[in-house]
Design a protein around this nucleic acid. Sequence first.
DNA 1: GGAATGTGACATTGCACTTGTCAAAATGAC
DNA 2: GTCATTTTGACAAGTGCAATGTCACATTCC
Lengths: 153, 153
Amino acid sequence: MYNVDMKAAHLHQLIWMSRPLMQAAEACVEAGLVGTNLTVRMRAVLEILHKYGEQTVPEIAARLEIQRQYVQIMCNETLASGFIEQRANPRHKRSPILALTDHGRTLIKEIISKEMKLVAAMGEDLSDEDVATALKVVLAVADSLKKQAGDRK
Amino acid sequence: MYNVDMKAAHLHQLIWMSRPLMQAAEACVEAGLVGTNLTVRMRAVLEILHKYGEQTVPEIAARLEIQRQYVQIMCNETLASGFIEQRANPRHKRSPILALTDHGRTLIKEIISKEMKLVAAMGEDLSDEDVATALKVVLAVADSLKKQAGDRK
DNA sequence: GGAATGTGACATTGCACTTGTCAAAATGAC
DNA sequence: GTCATTTTGACAAGTGCAATGTCACATTCC
C-alpha cells in the first residue's frame, strides 16, 4: 500500500513537471534561434519536414496535432522566408507539397545538431539505462493520459 | 559514441514529449472537473493552498511562476465562488491571506484523491523503481534546461 | 520622514491557437 | 458521367493564458 501511494505520488509529480519542462525547453529553443531569422513555429515546420520528408500542410497539421488553418499560417511564413518551397502535388492540384530548400535543410540540420549537443551535455550525469527507462515511462504515461482523456469525451 | 547518440536522442524525445504529455494531463484534469463549478485555474489555486497552506496572492504567483496580476484574477474568481476566503494579514494590511473554506478543502481533497486513483491505475504496469528513475531523470533534465535558458538571458 | 518596495486593481497587448466560412478542387457512390 | 461529399487554401473572428504597464495605497528600510 505504501509503495502504491509512493508510486502514484511520483507519477503525479512527473506528470506535473511536464509544464515547467516544456516551458524551459521552449525557452532554450528560442534562445538557440536568435540570429537565425527563424521563429519557434517555423522551426517546428522545418523539423517535421526534415524528420518525415516533404508533405502537405494538412499532413503537418496531423503530426503536430493542431488545426490545419494555423499550420497554414506557419507554413506560409516559412515559405515567405525561403526555408521551404512548394512543389506540384500529383495527388492534389490545390495542395502543394512542401519541401525544404537547401538553405532550410542546412539550417535545420545545424540547429538540431546544436540542440543535440546541448542535450548530450545535459545527460552526462545520467546513465543510458536511466534515460531509456525515463523515456519508456513517460511514453507510457502520455499514452495512458491520452486514452483517458479520449474516453471521457 | 553510439551510446552517447542514443542517449541524446532519447533525451530529445523525452523533452519533446512534455508538450503532448502536458496537454493530455490538462485534458484529463479538465474532464475530471466537469460538474464541480471549478475551472482548471481555480483548481490550481486550491491545490497550492491545500499543499502549502494559506498564503497571499504574490506567494502563490511565485510558486506557479507566473505574474502576480494574473494570479490575482484567478484568486478573485476562486474567492467569488466561495472555495477560498480572505483572512487578515498581520504582515500586510492590503494583502490578505487566502485560505481554503471547508467547502473548498473538501472539494480539492476529493478531486486530488480521484486524480490519484487514476494515476495509480495508469502506473499499474510500471515498476516502482522505473517510476522513481523517470522522475529523477525528468527533474534533472528540467533543472538543466532551466539553467541553460537562464544562462542565455 | 522620505525613498524604495510590495500589493491590489485595472487596462492594454501579445501569442498561440480554435472556430467558422467560403470557393475551388478532388473524391466517391451510383 | 454526374452529383453529393470531402479536402484544401484563404480569410475573419474569437478565445484563453498569460505578460506588461500604470496607478494608488501600504509597508519597509534607511
